[in-house]
């Protein structure tokens, strides 16, 4: 079993900013990221910004574990971590949950046809894998990010139509998506993007039984926290999983949370 002062779950800019602060404070830290690369959603917008944090992490204090996810959290902050093939068991004194957010699915008939993508999946395909799924696209949903429009335009993908969620009746196609039926008529395109905002990635918090609060504006559950600490001792939260904000605000969140964790660990040590 490995031992750490802090495990940061999620290597987006929040977690990266936290890791920089943790290494400055000389805390023995593990950063776990389920993707192949660091940076979360910011990778799609500003890779340089992501790297500016990665460069500042002191590897004498911070271990990076990519392509792995935290699979289970148990009593006394013991974690099981895996890449689907291995089993890494970790005992930590504190946890920072910075798992961010993910794209919201919407339900409609035939929503499981191939060539229907969530907007973040689409950004990943184009930005990270240089895949162009087609020449023209329809977007459905109530929250359209300007970066999505910009990326499509820069990739020479024609936006045939943008449809409100409530106008959509169904998608159709023989074995793959071909088009949609809406209250305003039928439309066709090479592929369909669903863009309806995000949900906080809060499974770890709920597994830990953290007290959650419903945010009326975002219509989602976020953890109750005081000075970044949740209702569970030693479990801290920062970034979009704590509340939806922009990248700069999340960066500040990440480093501030680690300062709070450092104080908490100091207090815990003092008590002994």
């Amino acid at each position: 079993m490995l031992h750490y002062d802090l495990v940061i779950i999620g290597g987006g800019v929040t977690g990266l900013s936290a890791a920089v602060e943790a290494s400055n404070l000389k805390m023995k830290t593990l950063l776990v990221e389920q993707g192949f690369t660091l940076g979360g959603h910011t990778r799609f917008f500003n890779e340089g910004y992501v790297q500016s944090f990665v460069r500042k992490i002191n590897n004498n204090y911070v271990d990076l574990l990519l392509n792995h996810s935290v699979v289970g959290v148990y009593d006394d902050l013991v974690l099981s971590i895996s890449d689907g093939n291995d089993f890494v068991k970790v005992q930590t004194k504190s946890i920072l949950v910075s798992t961010g957010s993910y794209q919201k699915r919407i339900s409609f008939p035939n929503n499981d046809l191939p060539n229907i993508y969530g907007y973040l999946t689409l950004l990943e395909m184009i930005k990270l894998h240089q895949v162009k799924p087609g020449n023209n696209v329809i977007i459905v949903g109530d929250e359209i990010h300007e970066m999505l429009i910009e990326t499509l335009e820069n990739s020479d993908i024609n936006i045939v139509k943008i449809i409100d969620k409530t106008d959509l009746i169904e998608a159709y196609g023989d074995e793959v998506y071909q088009g949609i039926t809406t209250k305003k008529g039928n439309f066709q395109s090479d592929f369909l993007i669903v863009s309806d905002g995000n949900l906080p990635h809060n499974e770890i918090l709920r597994m830990l039984n953290c007290e959650m609060v419903f945010d009326q504006e975002e219509q989602s559950w976020f953890p109750k926290s005081v000075d970044y600490m949740t209702s569970i001792k030693g479990v801290f939260v920062a970034g979009n999983v704590k509340s939806f904000k922009n990248a700069e605000e999340n960066v500040f969140d990440g480093s501030s949370a680690v300062k709070a964790i450092f104080n908490y660990l100091g207090e815990m040590h003092g008590k002994k």
């Binding site: 148990y74 009593d75 099981s80």
Partner: peptide, 8 residues
């Protein structure tokens, strides 16, 4: 009814 790593 908590799960444990030891069981796994």
């Amino acid at each position: 009814q908590d799960s444990s790593i030891e069981f796994l």
